[in-house]
């Protein structure tokens, strides 16, 4: 749970106190130098190695306002990589008013349940709010208990849309 957020001067980075004796977390925009660690963490979490996807995602977020690729790192001097979150503001798809979409989040396994995910969530919500939207949304696999529990712990609940699908024969 994030208790305090202080806007820092460099690159809109935000500092988040995690409480419970954990070190503060710094959340900042991603740089190209972060990509190897992001690719590795995503590969660990999903079992899929996708360097092209992450390269393209990074360059898209660099080009378009309203797209956010954020990195969490330790606020201590070693700036240890802790995780990442990606999201963007989208408007009018599915008849939806503009809202912020969280597309993916990843936290280093050893640093889970220590406020890192909450710091990333709070940071991207602050950026979405600055973009002028009032709602944040995500989509999850129904049986993805880990992420479902995390997003619910941030106050998210089922929204007014429902996903439907069918195999195309």
């Amino acid at each position: 749970m994030t208790d305090d957020t202080t806007l820092l001067a460099n690159d809109n980075a935000t500092r988040h106190a995690t409480g419970d004796g954990e070190a503060d977390v710094l959340v900042r925009r991603a740089t190209a130098n972060d990509l190897p660690l992001v690719i590795e963490l995503d590969g660990d979490n999903t079992g899929l190695h996708k360097p092209d996807y992450w390269g393209e995602t990074f360059h898209e977020t660099e080009r378009h306002p309203g797209q956010h690729f954020l990195i969490a790192e330790s606020a201590s001097s070693d700036h240890e990589f802790l995780g990442f979150i990606v999201g963007e503001v989208r408007a009018w798809e599915f008849g939806s008013r503009p809202c912020g979409w969280i597309l993916t989040i990843g936290v280093v396994h050893e640093r889970r349940v220590a406020g890192v995910g909450s710091a990333l969530f709070d940071a991207i919500c602050e950026r979405f709010a600055a973009d002028g939207v009032k709602t944040v949304r995500t989509m999850l696999a129904r049986h993805d208990q880990l992420n479902m529990s995390f997003f619910r712990s941030q106050g998210m609940m089922a929204g007014s849309f429902i996903e439907l699908e069918k195999p195309i024969d």
Binding site: H143, Q145, M148, S149, R152, S153
Partner: peptide
């Protein structure tokens, strides 16, 4: 079941 299983007492 997915809904009940994802909401902890603390949440």
């Amino acid at each position: 079941r997915a809904t009940f299983g994802s909401i902890t007492i603390e949440t």
